[in-house]
Amino acid sequence: MADIVEIEQQDNQIERRKKERRKQTRIHLQTAIVTRDNRQTIGEITVADPRIRCTDIDVFYGDKHAVRNVTLDIGRQEIIAMIGPSGCGKSTFLRCFNRMNDTIENCHVTGKIMMDGQDINDKSIDVVPLRAKVGMVFQKPNPFPKSVYENVAFGPRIHGLAKDKVELDEIVVTSLKRAGLWEEVKDRLDQPGTSLSGGQQQRLCIARAIAVNPEVILMDEPCSALDPIATTKIEELMDKLCADYSIVIVTHNMQQAARVSHRTAYFHLGDLIEVGTTEQIFTKPGHQLTEDYITGRFG
């Protein structure tokens, strides 16, 4: 009996020591979630060695202040998702990265967007090479009304990336392979790009973007017109491509943001509300507005 009690006591000593330590480290919870009326960005907006560093970006459409004082870094091998309700400024912000807003009348962008040591809003910057460096994929697949081959060859040709036909062929093949489309189109390179399925067309657009050696790929709702299988293929492709490129994706599909991105940024009425790792945003958002949006508690 004494032995049993001894064993029992030893057993309990272990537990007691644990508890002693617990007593020494009293639990203090810091849990305040940021309230809805606070519009300061919370979370890590900067990263070490960013590909793009945006500082104090404001975008106006005439009098409308569409993006308000946004500061955010885009990392080198990351997929960053921008989420938020319609009209929150996420697409407008995305379009700042390749100066697509220049094409909109009355649109006015202020602030600094530094890429490779240069401000891309600088007047001396030529937008054509900029848009090669920062490729874009749109919501609706928009292949040129040309052959599959020509769709991919067009960019390298106008940017003079190939010396001869052999080199150009190589770029086309490599780009189609990287876009995961080669096996499906290798026998129909001369057919029109528009003859492909929606998902294939979107991957063709991605092949077209990567053919000109971009650093960043912007994707504005790239899967909203695609079925789940085509969507999965694009997501898988993004997962591979992020080893070489920074990918910025705007999506209304929160599950997609959760699946593919490393970081997530939440926009609300032009303000960047919260940035964080995707894991943190979707399990423990720090701002009430973020939580309301991702859990489906609108307004």
């Binding site: 644990k18 330590r21 617990r22 639990i27 849990t31 399990t283």
Partner: peptide
């Protein structure tokens, strides 16, 4: 709160 405080005593010991 989203804080996982299980085994706090082990982690901080």
């Amino acid at each position: 709160s989203g804080e996982d405080i299980r085994h706090t005593e082990i982690e901080q010991a």
